[in-house]
Design a binder for these strands. Sequence first.
DNA 1: GAGTCATTCGTTG
DNA 2: CAACGAATGACTC
Length: 101
Amino acid sequence: MTFEEKIYEVLRKVPRGKVTTYKNLAEKIGSKAYRAVGQAMRNNPFAPEVPCHRVVRSDGRVGGFMGKTTGKEIQKKIEMLTSEGVEIIDGKVADFSLRCF
DNA sequence: GAGTCATTCGTTG
DNA sequence: CAACGAATGACTC
């Protein structure tokens, strides 16, 4: 079980309609490698079980989903979040503090 | 073996 | 108040 595997396990526990942050995940597994968390998301060996789109920055920003990485397909994830009940406004999570797992 | 990456915190100007 | 650099862990070349 590697560090990233733990990330998937914790992220997997996040209920639908809620979001979490890289920092929160890293702290939950007992590490401060926030960046490593993003790495795990980038790999995303678990497609639907580990919703990387449910993970956002500490500021509530979606992070590397928009404007970075591939570019367009990312926006589809935003719509998926909205469909789940997570509103994304200006690339940020609405009521992020309330939805933070 | 070295470099990269979807972040966050701490210090300096 | 704003900007830059450092740290962390796995993956790829």
